[in-house]
Nucleic acid binder design. Structure first.
Lengths: 343, 343
DNA sequence: TCCATTTAAGTAAACGTTTACTCAAAGGAC
DNA sequence: GTCCTTTGAGTAAACGTTTACTTAAATGGA
């Protein structure tokens, strides 16, 4: 029984049970009406015994739904995308959906290739998560206009039309970081930014500035440096900052730069957090396992995954979506305790 | 032109070009013969202009191939699986294949559910990677017997039949680690093992023992401890080892335990590597970014991905596979330099 | 008893391809 | 001119479902 590979079809069941394929289909899909309880039991029993499993291709061909969703990420090595994917999968599996994972390798040419190859019937929807902002939004907007379910993550641009965009609250992230350090008594807070071109990095910096002003502190560009998100770039930036001096806390724009900064600090013989407090934007396994332990802001990637999953199911089922832009609040993460800052 | 969402079919092309669907199909699939150059050009032009894209479901229904492969991993958070997935994707994308990624969450019940749901026509093959060895191998063996393409990673058991198993050379990993430390002058080498139930952890330990004997060293159980692969377990194990003392080097069975051990060492006021040399089995981003920098053995997950991709394509195309068990040699990784130990 | 309604099905088209088979015309050898 | 082969197609079945439409029998009310 339940032979896994045997190709028993709905026709086989029909002929064995002396009914039509229509009846079998109705029973198997639990469509009410159109058959007696006796017939139902007979068909169900036969299906069970013969190990019937529906052919997803045949079904999809007629229903025009595949129960497949594609997720495009720039690079699965980023902790954020791992968390995001896990949350999304958790949500969509409940609806019988499976996920195609595609690494675009931060190349928008690749991205377009994937999208064009997937949107024509293979998947019911596409989720595009971008590392930073991308210019090439036209294709997405066009698909969206044709009512093909598309959701983007952290994508920015003037021409996004009605596209459903889910974003991290980058501004709040930066503001929140300052707030925390201020509450710990810090009055001079250095900042290591992300790439100049990165929109979200810029927004985090704006949040940092707002946080300073809100607490009556004067922004000072002499204790702000650019990095390129890499470990080494932050080490270098931190060395420069240490020469300038005059601050008691540091905010770094991502996890790798946080670690890179820490290296420069300990190398210089300063202690964390006694001499300099370090706060990382983007809590990941790297910041979690770091010694000495550091404070970090959690981007709630797992929760974002759930949110996106919910939106995607709504779009696929043609349900109203409410607002098109959803902003996920970051969570403040200090050692083992996690709490939501905004209710 | 090239309207992405419009559903132009082969029939549309046929009627516009005044040919049959068969001819269109032949042209589009580059099947030689059956049409003139003039006809070919006309059809190709129309297809381009109307933005024709074949319906993958309809095609799959008749060809019985979906160009989809499923990858089951216990948890995508493990660096090994990220690397593995990236390598596999790189390889299979070249053949027009896309990957379904499924997190089994280290639960063999989940694993079975996924497999049963996928093997009936949705994917052309399944790759099952296991964190440790699993008992429930029957389903896999049965599918394999029915010639459904299955490849397993790091799976162990008596009853694996003709299953294609790709494995890390865990034995060599342990042996190699000892060899390196011996070459650096160490004569007393401690070891933190993985879980007692884990087959691959046990094999690594056997490699460690063999490495000791091979170099004329006497194994000493007093400087061997069990961990459970977690950071905390290694910190605890290391604290115990430090009390025992009498060693100058340590080998830890994975990346998290390597970091956990380092924490205990620095907390105890000992320096790395001056007082104690640390060598990690499994090089990951965690060991890469650790300060002070540590030596680690790379499991070549990316390369394994390529190997598995090659095997999978061979199985799908009914080509001979050669040996069914493939063992991937680990690579020795010291800071930035990587070199193969065995040619 | 007669008519209307419900129940329990069956029929057949449709989804968009691929492909085995057929076939007519043209070309070439003799 | 006849026969064989090649070329350039067309025909239609098949893949395994779903579903709109039809139908016959049973049920129920008056």
């Amino acid at each position: 029984m339940a032979k896994t590979g045997s190709r028993v079809t709905i026709k086989d069941l029909a002929s064995i049970c002396n009914v039509s394929t229509a009846t079998v289909s109705r029973v198997l899909n639990h469509i009410k009406g159109g058959y007696s309880g006796e017939t139902e039991a007979r068909i169900l029993k036969a299906a069970e015994e013969m190990g019937y499993a529906p052919n997803p291709m045949a079904r999809s061909l007629v229903t025009r739904k595949t129960s497949l969703v594609a997720v495009l990420v720039p690079d699965i090595h980023y902790y954020f995308f791992q968390e995001f994917f896990a949350g999304l999968e958790e949500h969509l599996n409940d609806y019988g959906y499976r996920l195609l994972l595609c690494n675009t390798q931060e190349d928008s040419g690749q991205e377009e290739l994937f999208i064009r190859g997937l949107c024509n019937g293979l998947v019911d929807g596409i989720i595009v998560s971008t590392l930073n902002n991308r210019e090439q939004n036209d294709l997405l907007v066009e698909l969206d206009r044709e009512h093909f379910p598309i959701i983007t993550l952290e994508r920015y641009g003037e021409d996004l039309g009605d596209l459903c965009c889910v974003q991290i609250d980058n501004f709040e992230t930066g503001r929140m970081a300052v707030d925390y350090l201020y509450s710990q008594g810090h009055r001079r807070i250095a900042f290591i930014k992300g790439r100049r071109e990165a929109k979200n990095a810029e927004i985090r910096y704006q949040g940092y500035l707002a946080g300073l002003r809100q607490n009556g502190l004067e922004p000072d560009e002499s204790i702000v440096r650019y990095g390129d998100y890499s470990f080494a770039s932050a080490t270098k930036a931190m060395e420069e900052l240490l020469e300038v001096g005059g601050f008691t806390a540091l905010i770094a724009a991502n996890d790798l730069m946080t670690l890179g900064a820490c290296k420069a600090i300990t190398k210089a013989g300063r202690r964390i957090p006694e001499d300099i407090s370090v706060l990382g934007l983007d809590r990941t396994i790297l910041t979690d396992t770091h010694e000495p332990s550091i404070v970090a802001i959690d981007f709630c990637a797992h929760e974002i995954g759930h949110t996106v999953g919910k939106c995607m199911m709504a779009m696929i089922n043609n349900q109203p979506l409410g607002e098109k832009v959803i902003r996920q609040n970051p969570i403040f993460h200090n050692g083992k305790s996690i709490r939501l800052l905004q209710e």
